[in-house]
């Protein structure tokens, strides 16, 4: 009886946004008279950071400090239409709508500043710290606050913008499946190191090592939490979870977190991640979105590592100790495969 080490890998890609498109998002951006901005959306923050990523995109586009932007979502009376937070569409779709809205608001802001400075708006730049100045002449400047107050109380301008992003709906050919699914894909490759006990069928995941290509990482901390959390979910899908342990038999489902199995704190493996950034040509600042895809490579990589460890193929998820033991028995014991590196 022994614990056998195994290493397995998988590589994947993932489509960004609703398949076939046709899923619009809108954004409204406006400033109060002090030059503080609100972004109104109907996108949903599920914990993934929808508000924060929209806020950073708005601040970058407007050219103002991030603390001068807040995101208000989701109230159907004040937030414009949005398809929803699913299909890895939030960053890509909502982000693009926010850029359109913020560009329009920035245009009015610079016009107001130009009128106060008596220059051409095309010659103005923002420093990202709350100031607007003439390109190449930092002393000829006005604060965002002063320009906004002038717009509101002197010039009668509304510093606001509207944005929508829509990828038109694609047809699907019934005969060939020809279609335009999405415009951008994220990519990943993940390596799992684990050990399999040939007496109990128990699998212990020791380490995850991965490379994820996500377009530009708009907020690296939020990317990291998505990738770490998503890999945990992938491990859980691979080895633990299901409400129907003997599918298609519909019985024996868990009723709570005690009966519904998922990895606990002691089962979590360290995860060493490399992030690659190949910007999506039509993504907001090149962003794609790590939302859904981060779990996907873990499932097959675990299965492949189990084969590497003991020589059995489990093609039915989840890979429970029972399935491993039955396969080992059928095979006549563990047959470790060639070690990799």
């Amino acid at each position: 009886m022994a614990r056998h080490q195994g290493r397995g890998m998988a590589s994947i890609n993932y489509p960004i946004g609703m398949n076939l498109g046709g899923d619009p998002s809108q954004a409204l951006v406006h400033a109060n008279p002090d030059g503080k901005f609100t972004v109104a959306l109907s996108a949903i923050d599920l914990g993934q950071g929808m508000k924060q990523v929209s806020r950073q995109i708005a601040a970058e586009t407007l050219g103002v400090p991030i603390e001068d932007v807040y995101v208000d979502t989701a109230d159907s009376d004040t937030g414009p239409h949005d398809m929803g937070s699913f299909a890895s569409r939030g960053t890509h779709r909502v982000g693009n709508a926010v850029i359109v809205a913020a560009k329009e608001a920035r245009g009015v802001l610079l016009e107001a500043a130009a009128e106060e400075l008596e220059v051409n708006a095309d010659d103005l730049v923002t420093d990202g710290k709350g100031n607007i100045h003439v390109r190449g002449a930092a002393s000829k400047s006005i604060t965002v606050k002063a320009a906004s107050q002038a717009a509101q109380f002197k010039q009668g301008k509304t510093i606001s913008g509207r944005g929508i992003f829509l990828i038109p709906l694609s047809n699907v050919n019934p005969e060939t499946g020809e279609m335009s699914p999405v415009t951008a894909y994220a990519h990943a490759c993940l390596v799992v190191d684990l050990e399999v006990c040939d007496e109990t069928g128990d699998v212990k995941v020791n380490k995850l090592t991965s490379a994820y290509e996500l377009g530009r990482a708009l907020n690296p901390k939020m990317v990291e939490q998505q990738l770490v959390g998503g890999a945990w979910m992938g491990m859980s899908h691979a080895l633990y979870e299901t409400p129907e342990p003997y599918y298609p038999n519909p019985e024996n489902g868990g009723r709570d977190y005690n009966e519904y199995l998922m990895p606990g704190p002691g089962d979590i493996a360290p995860h060493d991640i490399a992030v690659l950034e190949r910007p999506a040509p039509d993504g907001p600042f090149g962003g794609k979105g790590p939302g859904e895809m981060c779990a996907n490579p873990v499932l097959p990589a675990v299965a492949n590592a189990i084969f590497n460890a003991v020589g059995v193929r489990i093609d039915t998820l989840p890979i429970t100790p029972e399935k491993i033991l039955r396969a080992l028995r059928a095979q006549g014991g563990a047959r470790p495969q060639a070690r990799r590196a």
Partner: peptide, 20 residues
């Protein structure tokens, strides 16, 4: 990797800012 496809000189994008 893919460095020539990105402008990395941005103010807020690419920063691990804390959520609002």
């Amino acid at each position: 990797l893919f460095a020539d496809e990105r402008d990395d000189n941005l103010n807020v994008i690419g920063k691990g800012e804390q959520r609002q």
